[in-house]
Design a protein around this nucleic acid. Sequence first.
DNA 1: ATTGGCAGTCTCGATCCGCGAGTGCTAACT
DNA 2: AGTTAGCACTCGCGGATCGAGACTGCCAAT
Lengths: 345, 345
Amino acid sequence: MEATPLDERKQQILKAVISDYTVTGVPVGSQVLAAKYFIALSSATIRNELADLVGTGYLQQPHTSAGRVPTDRGYRYFVDFLMDPEAASPTVRRTVKQAFETAPRSVEGILEKAAMVLAQITENVSLVTAPETSEARIKHIDLVSLESQSVLIILVLEGNLIKQTVIRLDRATSQDDLSRMAAMLNRKVKGQTADELLSRLSQLGPDRDEQRQILERVIESISTHQAQRQSVVLHDGVRNLLRHPEFVEVNRLEELLELLEQGAQLAGILQQVAFDKDVEIIIGRENTSSGLRECSLVLTTYKMDERVRGTIGVIGPTRMHYGQVVARVRLVSQATSELLGPLGN
Amino acid sequence: MEATPLDERKQQILKAVISDYTVTGVPVGSQVLAAKYFIALSSATIRNELADLVGTGYLQQPHTSAGRVPTDRGYRYFVDFLMDPEAASPTVRRTVKQAFETAPRSVEGILEKAAMVLAQITENVSLVTAPETSEARIKHIDLVSLESQSVLIILVLEGNLIKQTVIRLDRATSQDDLSRMAAMLNRKVKGQTADELLSRLSQLGPDRDEQRQILERVIESISTHQAQRQSVVLHDGVRNLLRHPEFVEVNRLEELLELLEQGAQLAGILQQVAFDKDVEIIIGRENTSSGLRECSLVLTTYKMDERVRGTIGVIGPTRMHYGQVVARVRLVSQATSELLGPLGN
DNA sequence: ATTGGCAGTCTCGATCCGCGAGTGCTAACT
DNA sequence: AGTTAGCACTCGCGGATCGAGACTGCCAAT
């Protein structure tokens, strides 16, 4: 099972097997391959090659006397070396464009729309993480007096991302005082990131106790990844999975749904997507989660500007049309980034 | 099929059939009934009664020589007249309490937690609508300058519910001017509802054009039900459905998922839940949506105070333990209301 | 009105069988 | 040495068959 380099013909055969299997979902045999893809060769020759590919672990057969099916390793080789680059069709581009036209001009709205349209055009489950805000610049702070000593802190970040948190002060403070304090804070913190704020916190004199309390809470609020909602990962399109024959057995679906609905574990996986790479593909058992044993992830990132970013992608059966999905994930990621960009100012 | 009043014994038999079927999921026959529930009677007698109940439409048999299964009509009679009131068990109460202890102190966070725990304790899909805010009082307004003539309006309503919207003014306005305007607006609108605001809008002189623009947008923002997110209905626990044998056929699930994931149609149904009634139950084909043909809804409302309310409930197979589900929906609704209450001040 | 008895109905699961698809091997061929 | 035709063999799948079991409806007796 060592890294066997494949000669040209074996590559072509592997590619043909994956193409065919992706479409039909049925193990593909030597005769079909000879007829559809390799007219110059006989089925016997192909049989020999197939046997080799099984031996080196790129293909497997469900049982003796059945056709061949790609293994995770086969898919990996395919996406790394064999896959033809595809471009999103005009129809798909139009779908995406139209979807975003009706999106509300808020970060949450746009991300939700992105999840929706990505699920639609890939016919899989889409995943979108909330943007990472620890390096986002603060645009505005407001303080609202609640009952007695409670204060509602409202924070506007780049991209009009709003965070709120409630703080309890040591003494009662009127709304007028709070407004004054907010005005002062605004002058001080505007345009800073949470990190910058943290380093400047120590410069405050000990007499500014309330300001310090508030700022500490502000930093905390930015750093905790979750916004006002608990779920860190948006998803859409679970209904699409039901159309794939690999999910007729419900127990597979159940594990997957659990993963999606609690989100925490998934968030961990998505966070590890490298920001520098283009599109990252994780196939089958390459996933650590057992629920994703028979699934693949196609992930990339979106940006709001250089400092605020998140992950976007899809999750589907390992038997998916990788070329197409990659193109479409990339398309939606770009469109999302473009749309989020101007919100920043 | 006219409204036949059922005599005492028929009622008891209907009740027994539903009890048994709810637990086993298997059509229940006369012998089982005689042995488990009516030791004084022979199976032959029960057979006669069963035949009557089929004739009047409360029961049906999947095929000749099978046991009986409740019809929608049977369930309806059961929940209206026969169902024993149940109380949530201490274990369940504790689960709910503990879940809410870790909830963030924001409306969204609490509602999400409510959906989560309700799904968990009912082992069905939970539904929670965002609170209806058209009659909520305004607590605070803030205006933030974006690029050139764009202004971000931030609105804090009762319960620290935050709404945001972007407006474009006729002329560029500095943040200082906006802050002054915000202070003035705060004095004017604090404690008012959108409706009250609307009626007072006409009193503004024509010279206050900008204020008018802003206030119009404020009203609109409050009235549109959706907050910053598109989905009006939260849901959780789809994974629970897969455990029910009625959903092993995936196509049923697909219709249901579609309904859940687009939400609009569902929102319509949930909005019609009467606020004065206690718990509303909608059974099988009583639903207008075809996707809910084999599902029941158990719904009630929650309140933040007298003016802000939403719907909360579950959706599951018609074969569910209604008594228990009703008790648990009621429990979570009450707990949610209690938790949301103090947020208001 | 209730009940025991009984014949009849229908589903469900197990078993069996034959078809067809596909393979691996061998021997011949280029 | 690589390729190919031929062939025997394997195995899954779908359909047909069948018997067991679960219930029923009906009838006659209580």
